[in-house]
Write a protein that binds this DNA or RNA. Structure first.
Ligand code: FES
Ligand code: FES
Lengths: 171, 171
DNA sequence: CGAAATAGCACTTGTCAGATACGATTACCA
DNA sequence: TGGTAATCGTATCTGACAAGTGCTATTTCG
């Protein structure tokens, strides 16, 4: 299975382009840049604009530009918008407020709680990544050796790690 | 999007049943237990047996039982088998050895490296969860406050715990 | 031998991502 | 004031794959 759909993947690419070219660009320019279908790029940009990530300006000199700084957008937030809600399983809704009991096994299922914890752990990883980090070619995410440094990290205990209960306060 | 397909979700349920009933059980019993289609359960068990998670015994007194202790199976391993390879994007294969350059943007794409790092972080979370933890009703995963336990895991995830709470501000 | 169970495969069906298209609206410019 | 170039909104089509069913062969026990 693939976590990011192709649409979300291209959305990241497009946002990366708009991030580097601060002047922004129109759909055709972006599509030409990446060799994609102009209609497809236009649709993705429309969806991004609808969710408030980019701002579109119409007219002959219009185009798209980032509506918010890239370091204020987390990967989790983008995926929650582009993909239709990030869930671990069918029975674990990401939004805890709407608890539609569509699963017939909800009573006998003992995995619901533990799976929710795993889901929150994954969400924490996505929340810790901002688009600015993702787009920075010299950032901490660009070193492939960062994976190895996982095991040989100095024993600096992450004392300041606030363990939030990970409650997505969705209005 | 949903990380675990319904098949994987039911596979976890079935494995949980086989874990609690050490004597094992046949497909019909399990299907009856959860109110699922016997054929569907049988197919899932067949696939689990094919991947070596459960051992099937034919004959009139046959059935399935866990082939390996539950604490030696990680959630990542199960998903890698049931689902067909856990990838973050289309262009980030989970297996680094086969580097088929199917993506036409592989040259111009600057996100490949950072996304791989994120992918590995997510994989670490899944690798840190064993089925035994998942099935234990009194385990660390059953407490909603188990997010604390991230810090006492063997230095896998949360390489740099970001102090920013990453508040999701809905516009 | 016959019943009961797994093993393996072929098949149908339903859903949704992926992708395209078109008209409406807006803004710039001559 | 008209024309053009862009976004905006929506509607639609299609292919791939998940979801689910069924059947036959094989094995084991009584
Ligand atoms: S399988 Fe639906 S609640 Fe666990
Ligand atoms: S989009 Fe294919 S390599 Fe980045």
């Amino acid at each position: 299975m693939t976590l990011l759909s192709r649409k979300a993947d291209y959305a990241l690419l497009i946002l990366s382009y708009l991030h580097q070219n601060t002047g922004g660009g129109n759909a055709r320019t972006v599509a030409d840049k990446f060799g994609l279908s102009p209609s497809f790029v236009a649709n993705i940009l429309k969806e991004l604009a609808h969710h408030g990530f980019v701002a579109g300006h119409r007219g002959v000199k219009g185009g798209y530009a980032l509506a918010r700084p890239a370091d204020t957008i987390t990967l989790a937030e983008l995926l929650e918008s582009i993909e239709s809600g990030f869930r671990l399983t069918m029975c674990n809704p990401s939004l805890p407020d709407q608890h539609h009991e569509q699963c017939s096994l909800a009573g006998a299922c003992t995995l619901k709680g533990p799976l929710t914890v795993v889901h929150n752990r994954l969400l924490e990883v996505l929340r810790a990544v901002t688009l600015a980090e993702l787009f920075d070619p010299n950032g901490s995410l660009s070193q492939p050796s960062a994976l190895l440094s996982l095991s040989l990290l100095p024993a600096t205990t992450t004392t300041t790690c606030r363990s939030e209960p990970a409650t997505v306060t969705q209005a």
